[in-house]
Design a binder for these strands. Structure first.
Lengths: 134, 134
DNA sequence: ACCACAATTGACAACCGTTATCGGTATCAA
DNA sequence: TTGATACCGATAACGGTTGTCAATTGTGGT
């Protein structure tokens, strides 16, 4: 079983043709497209995936923690989730998003004390600013 | 000039009656309502504020960094922004959101090195889990 | 391989949270 | 006070997202 299929299986999703196409594209892609944009991109690349399927798959992948969601004005963008603790560097000017995984992040995150009874399942840090290109 | 009016002024907004109502409510409120919900809550409390005004004001406050936005399924919730660095503890079960401001957060965040040319303007950390009540 | 069943797909319609419009109103500096 | 400007709010319009459902596909048992 390929890497993509395994990823889908772990997310509790059958590795269908359409889902493989979507996941494969998200892994290769460095950008952060919306469902609408990804649907158009896949169409332009010669793939045939319905818009409903793109929405459903992205939603399922987000719930499974395979992709991160980035709210925009009246829409939501998606991006493959990097392995391990990392931060998102979001440029307020051009909208570009980069992942940053400094070594000290692991230790800093793990040493925090949370209220009794709160069980941590996930963590996410977004850093807003202006990138070097802007 | 009162605290609320000053807050609005600093955000570049005229301290009108409606905006005072909205900001005052957000400061007192511990929950995280959507624009639609806040509009209904204000109505129930006897205030007269148009839905458009609620949307516009929350949008402006979010852009000014006075409130934080929390995306939900197909809608956006708002919550007053706590002073200083803090994390959001978000319960995946009941949806409740708490602010947590551990002392070590300041130092950990400030010591991180970012790519050359990236100027940090804001930072946000969300921690997902299940709260003690759930 | 084959088959039966359940999960998935996709074109289309409906939904609904959000935004634009615009005449009337409140705010503020002079 | 007064003029200029920002703001309000009822309503209409918009558009991203989700629901629907018949046709198709993936899966596990035989």
């Amino acid at each position: 079983m390929g890497e993509v299929a395994g990823l889908l299986r772990r997310a509790g999703l059958r590795p269908t043709t359409q889902r493989r196409i979507i996941v494969t594209d998200l892994i290769d892609r460095t950008g952060t497209p919306t469902a609408l944009e990804l649907h158009a991109l896949l169409r332009d690349a010669g793939h045939r995936v319905g818009l409903s399927t793109v929405y459903r798959t992205l939603g399922a992948l987000a719930e499974a923690g395979v992709v991160h969601t980035f709210p925009r004005r009246n829409e939501v963008a998606f991006r493959r989730c990097a392995d391990g603790p990392h931060q998102h560097l979001i440029c307020l000017s051009c909208g570009r998003i980069e992942d940053l995984a400094p070594p000290q992040l692991d230790a800093a995150a793990g040493s925090l004390a949370y209220p009794a009874g709160f069980t941590v399942q996930g963590r996410r840090t977004d850093v807003y600013g202006v990138c070097a290109a802007c």
